[in-house]
């Protein structure tokens, strides 16, 4: 009762990175709230899955293992979460802001009339005073996210409703094994008690998942382009520089929306979060959603012909110039000096 829950997403029989990251965050929230961390894994052929999960500090792992539960479909997973939560009454529930988490979370929150905040970039615990009602709530989950096109950062709380639910994108939190020998309890549930046959109205006929074509998330050097790149053709300059520096190319949402770059390279709140040692922002103005995805970079270089671009305030080096002018020079002088 009243514990922190993390829904663990499964690909084949492997727990997703984002879920492991959330287990680490969940552990620290549970410590602050002085409660237990529990995890839910729903899928097929899950024997031994606890070895992937419990070392992150999970006290109780709920396993739902049934051949019909993989691949994910909305209704059976929703029914399990809703019925489990009616029994367990968690105070906090975290899910990945993935296609699955964003399909499942709203459904569960609707059935339990609990609040849900999407794409949080920070989660904290703190008090909340409702001045009008004259009530102070202790130990609420602060769900912090950029909002309204990234012009503001909002802190959302759910004072009255439980669980307090939030989704978080992959790469935002950091995963860390707490103890390889952590002692947690595994509860294997009888799936038929939680799911009805009518939940299987949607059938997955075909499924193609490819490994990411690039390693942007783990790249030590990221060359990112924004709307200021001007065209898809100019993005080639970024690939040229990335090839020289052994980096990867990323993009802002504006550049992706304009068709300059594929969506899977988008960096920011609604894309990837990166932690490179060098980040070169080319023609990126620096809306907060973009900054949310790259602010932990070691060194930031901004190339922009607008000296007042917001990104310049967090950059270590600002190059005042056009991308067409500066990028070829960076390549030229790197080639000249690196040998």
């Amino acid at each position: 009762m009243n514990n922190v829950f993390v829904y663990c997403e499964i690909e084949e029989t492997t727990v997703a990175e984002v879920s492991l990251e959330l287990l680490t965050k969940g552990r620290s929230l549970a410590n602050k709230l002085n409660c237990q961390l529990e995890a839910v894994v729903i899928g097929s052929n899950l024997k031994g899955v606890e070895k992937q999960v419990i070392p992150y500090g999970v006290d109780v792992l709920h396993v739902f293992d049934d051949s019909r539960l993989y691949p994910y479909t909305s209704l059976p997973h929703s029914s399990i979460m809703i019925n489990l939560f009616k029994e367990e009454k968690p105070q906090v529930c975290l899910m990945g802001a993935t296609v699955i988490g964003r399909d499942l979370g709203p459904r569960v929150s609707s059935a339990l009339t609990s609040g849900l905040t999407a794409d949080c970039t920070q989660l904290e615990i703190g008090p909340h005073e409702d001045k009008r009602a004259g009530v102070t709530y202790e130990n609420l989950l602060y769900q912090i996210r950029p909002a309204f096109g990234g012009n503001i950062v909002a802190t959302i709380v759910n004072p009255e409703h439980r669980p307090q639910m939030a989704t978080v994108r992959e790469g935002v939190m950091k995963k860390e094994i707490l103890d390889e020998n952590y002692k947690g309890q595994v509860v294997e549930h009888e799936v038929g008690k939680y799911v009805s046959d009518t939940d299987f109205v949607i059938k997955v006929i075909e499924r193609h998942v490819e490994k990411a074509k690039h390693n942007l998330k783990g790249a030590p050097i990221v060359i990112a382009g924004g709307y200021g790149m001007g065209s898809k053709e100019n993005f080639q300059l970024l690939y040229d520089l990335a090839k020289e520096l052994h980096g990867e190319v990323g993009a802002s949402r504006a550049a992706v929306d304009a068709g300059f770059c594929e969506h899977d390279r988008q960096i920011g709140q609604t894309g990837l979060t990166v932690h490179p040692k060098l980040y070169i922002a080319c023609g990126i103005s620096g809306q907060i959603q973009h900054i949310a995805g790259m602010q932990d970079a070691g060194i930031i270089i901004s190339i922009n012909n607008d000296p007042n671009a917001p990104i310049n305030t967090i950059a270590d080096y600002v190059i005042n110039g056009t991308v067409e002018e500066v990028l070829p020079k960076l390549i030229k002088y790197y080639k000249k000096n690196s040998k």
Partner: peptide
Amino acid sequence: PTKVKKIENIIFQAKESK
């Protein structure tokens, strides 16, 4: 069920930039 506790304008932690 969700309430907005706080709205902040974005102020970037300005670095010493060159």
